[in-house]
């Protein structure tokens, strides 16, 4: 049921080798992170707050540079095609919407920045809004939406560019449990449909077990990967898995790995 080693067979999309990050103020956030992210994989980074989970996402997204080690993209194409293929989507913990723009305009942003006009981007944006169930709200402003709906808009914005890899930084941490479960299911459904790679940062053991094909457990700062747990449960997963003994067993093992990683 559980496998100690990651699924080496899958082709990697990006890999981190000995990656470390020390910030200008001297904080050592990451040290010696080795992580191989398989193409089409749903990987969770699980760890205590402040362990550098978000930093890993920022490094993969290219928003920060590692101070040690290398990040390698295993592009299938070369040149401009590779750039296009490396299309990264990012979902923050906050919805991070522009309050002055409608739902449609918020989702349009990435395409607009790439030079697409409203009319040429419309079909793509509406498809993205439909896939999160917000097509009827295209003209609403963020302040008119609930927390869960704002998060859906944020996900639709990431979807609009058809990313090959989706980086999610505790996207549902601020939501109530009912909304979170619902968005978990929506996310899994979209992941199955679109064939993205997802790297999902969370500090919830149960969320990581429910969602992921693989969980990388991280240590306290400076963060590194302490355990790599394969969640050997087929997709699609349903409510039955959430409450199954198997889920409980994996959660127990994951939780133990987390406590060991935190040095308790």
């Amino acid at each position: 049921m559980l496998n100690a080693s990651p699924a080496e067979s899958a082709e990697a999309i990006v890999s981190l080798d000995g990656v470390g990050k020390t910030f200008d103020n001297g904080t050592r956030a990451l040290a010696g992170v080795d992580l191989r992210i398989g193409r089409g994989e749903f990987l969770s980074l699980l760890g205590p707050s402040g362990c550098g989970k978000s930093t890993i996402l920022r490094l993969i997204a290219g928003l920060d540079e590692p101070t040690e080690g290398t990040i390698t993209w295993h592009d299938r194409a070369t040149g401009r095609a590779a750039q296009r293929e490396r299309n990264v989507g990012f979902v923050f913990q906050e919805p991070t919407l522009m309050p002055w723009a409608t739902v449609f305009d918020n989702a349009w942003l990435p395409l607009r920045l790439k030079g697409m006009t409203r009319s040429s981007a419309e079909a793509q944006i509406m498809t993205a809004l439909e896939s999160v169930g917000l097509a009827d709200f295209r003209n609403a402003y963020p302040r008119e939406l609930s927390g869960g709906m704002k998060m859906r808009v944020s996900i639709a914005r990431a979807l609009a560019t058809d990313p090959s890899i989706l980086l999610m930084d505790e996207p549902f941490a601020a939501l109530d449990e009912i909304t979170r479960f619902r968005l978990n299911d929506d996310l899994l459904r979209l992941w199955a449909d679109k064939g993205w790679t997802v790297v999902f940062v969370t500090h919830s053991v149960f969320e990581s077990v429910y969602l992921s094909a693989r969980i990388a457990v991280m240590t306290n700062r400076p963060g590194r990967i302490a355990a790599d747990i394969v969640v050997d449960e087929p997709f699609p997963r349903t409510e039955a898995f959430r409450t199954s003994p198997k889920n409980g067993e994996i959660a127990r093992i994951t939780s133990e790995a987390l406590h060991r990683a935190m040095g308790e």
Binding site: G133, S146, M149, R152, I178, T179, R189
Partner: peptide, 17 residues
């Protein structure tokens, strides 16, 4: 599964206070 059918609780906040 249709998302449209599962929005009720989200929607409450969308109507004007």
């Amino acid at each position: 599964m249709s998302l449209a059918a599962r929005r009720e609780s989200d929607e409450a906040a969308a109507t004007a206070p």
